[in-house]
Simulated assay, not measured.
Amino acid sequence: MLNISETIWQRWHNWLDDDTYWPVHSALIHGDLHPGHILVDQNYRVTGLLDWTEASVANPATDFALYYAIFGESALSHLLQQYQQSGGQVWPRMHDHIVELYCAYPVMIAMFVLRTGEKSYIELAQMMLSTHEQQIVGLGY
């Protein structure tokens, strides 16, 4: 269904095989947290979240992956500091795990296609795989 390069395939396997990336706890997650699902007031304070159809008790890093994609490394580091200061539970490699989770995002899109039959998303997943491969090769992986 998707063309996956050996570079990305190996990166995913390295991440999956290394327990130090992974949390030992779970949390209630939104599951599809992105700007379109976040309500803010005139002072840019979050007032609510929309569309809880993907909510579950799962990997707490899930809701940080798209934030990383949109705002980048330094913003993610800052958010994780704020999250921990506000009582959120973090683990030593949470930042690295979020980056790897985002790199695996095309798989989540493909799984959505398999669950829903929405074939139009396959093109998006393949485009993301190509983009991820360029980023990975650029980082020396």
Rank of each mutant, 00 (worst) to 15 (best):
P23I: 00
E100C: 14
A125P: 03
S130R: 11
V40W: 07
S86E: 12
P92G: 05
T53S: 15
W12Y: 15
H37C: 10
P92S: 05
D63C: 07
Y68V: 01
T131N: 10
Q84M: 06
T7D: 15
L129C: 06
L80C: 00
G31H: 06
A69Y: 06
Q82H: 10
N59W: 07
D17A: 15
Q126W: 01
I98L: 02
A75D: 12
G138E: 06
N14L: 14
H30Q: 06
E73W: 00
H13A: 12
N14H: 13
L76T: 02
Q10K: 15
M127N: 14
R11G: 08
I4G: 00
H97R: 01
E100N: 15
Y102F: 13
A104T: 03
V57Q: 09
W9V: 10
Q89W: 02
D17G: 13
Y83T: 00
N14S: 13
T116L: 02
A125C: 02
G31S: 07
G117V: 00
S26R: 14
M111E: 15
R115C: 05
L114I: 10
G48M: 04
S56R: 14
L139I: 01
R11W: 13
H34M: 03
L16W: 13
S120A: 12
Y105S: 11
L16M: 14
Q10Y: 07
W91M: 00
D19P: 10
D32T: 09
G140P: 05
L66S: 00
L80D: 00
Q84N: 07
H13K: 15
Q135F: 08
Y105M: 06
L2E: 05
V107M: 08
N14C: 09
L16F: 15
M111K: 13
I29H: 01
G31Y: 05
M111T: 12
K119I: 11
T20W: 04
Y21S: 04
T53M: 12
P60Q: 01
Q42P: 04
E123V: 09
I122Y: 07
Q10V: 12
Y83A: 02
E73T: 10
V113Q: 03
Q84A: 12
T7F: 06
Q134K: 14
L124G: 01
L79W: 08
G88H: 05
R45T: 12
A55I: 07
M127G: 09
W12K: 05
D96G: 09
A58W: 11
H37K: 10
W12V: 07
E6T: 14
R45N: 15
S74K: 08
W52E: 09
L2F: 04
I109F: 03
H97M: 05
L80P: 01
L66T: 08
L49K: 08
T116R: 05
Y44M: 13
W22S: 02
V99L: 08
R115K: 14
L139Y: 09
P106N: 03
I70P: 00
F64T: 03
I4M: 06
Q126D: 06
V113R: 04
G48F: 08
I109V: 15
A55M: 11
S86W: 02
H34Q: 10
S77Q: 15
G88L: 03
H95K: 08
L49P: 12
G31N: 08
Q134S: 13
V107W: 10
G88A: 03
Q10G: 05
I122S: 13
I29W: 03
H13I: 11
I70L: 11
M94C: 02
V137S: 04
S74R: 07
S77M: 10
A55P: 07
A75I: 01
H132T: 08
S26A: 13
I136T: 13
H34D: 05
